[in-house]
Nucleic acid binder design. Sequence first.
DNA 1: CGCATTTGACCGGCGC
DNA 2: GCGCCGGTCAAATGCG
Length: 329
Amino acid sequence: MSDEPREIYFHDSFYDDRHSIGGGGAGFPFSSHNPSSLYDHQVPLMSSSGPGFDPPYMSFMECLNGSGDFNALGRAFGLSPPGSSDVFSPSAEGNVKPLVDTGDLGGGGGPVPDTPNSSISSSSSEAGGDDEGGKNKTEQLPKGSEDGGESSNKKGNKPKKKGEKKQREPRFAFMTKSEVDHLEDGYRWRKYGQKAVKNSPYPRSYYRCTTQKCTVKKRVERSFQDPSIVITTYEGQHNHQIPPALRGNAAGMLPPPMLTQAQMAAGATYQHQLFGHQMHALAGGGGHGGPAGGSFYPQAFHQQFHHHQIPDYGLLQDAVPPFILRQQP
DNA sequence: CGCATTTGACCGGCGC
DNA sequence: GCGCCGGTCAAATGCG
């Protein structure tokens, strides 16, 4: 896009998402590839005391419950009002910056100290429909299949194009200090692409949930400003539970499947509060109303932060709240 | 043998 | 209208 390096910005805001977000969700616990190591260092993201947190790890839901009212939180972010969601204003802490506008996520505009690189969310195409629909180019040239009919498939396939742009699923990003790029979150992912990121020496990897019919995707990249930080962006909602095989690990910490948007919003807040400087996640909008049965996707993360502190990064993205894992030693 | 990753190319949107 | 860039596909390859 543009030329200048922008930090993370999201261009889409939450509103888009609202429609899609549903209510329930599967959670995303995180662990890293090496469970042991990660867990060891899991960090207490919460240094603070938030409205109710004491335990070091908890599920998003629990957090919510503990605090009791997400609405409040949501409001803090300005999320609640369905109609209005636009941006969130950071709540009090101020640590997080509104992603939306700014660009500042990271650092603020100009100065962006921190993450200029990542443009996590791109504005472009995006998901287009994410998933298959999006582009579907299906076979590209090799096949040469072009033939007439196909051509439509290649590009024409996409339903959108005309009136509507691609609708994008709610996205949520967060930064994690970790040695591993791909944090284990309990779900199985298949890498389907990797691209060099402009202004960053580190590539961005694209993953898709391997569960059938689940269209959740995630992008993982490192901040070039601080290589120890991994920026993970989730897009979409899981419509299934975490695979049993993985449950042993991460699943233990799985959060209950349903979250409301409000909760999600709250989650963001929590994270915000909890992590304070260490992590920032921005959520966007949260959808408001989605089908109840749907699941939102969760985010969790964990990281090895032992020593470092994350600078004030702002994170971006629209939508979903993060989960904090609960883990027991 | 099956599955996941790698990698090059294409598509489509956006900015200029 | 052109070029840039993000995102995705799919064949090839590697690994368990």
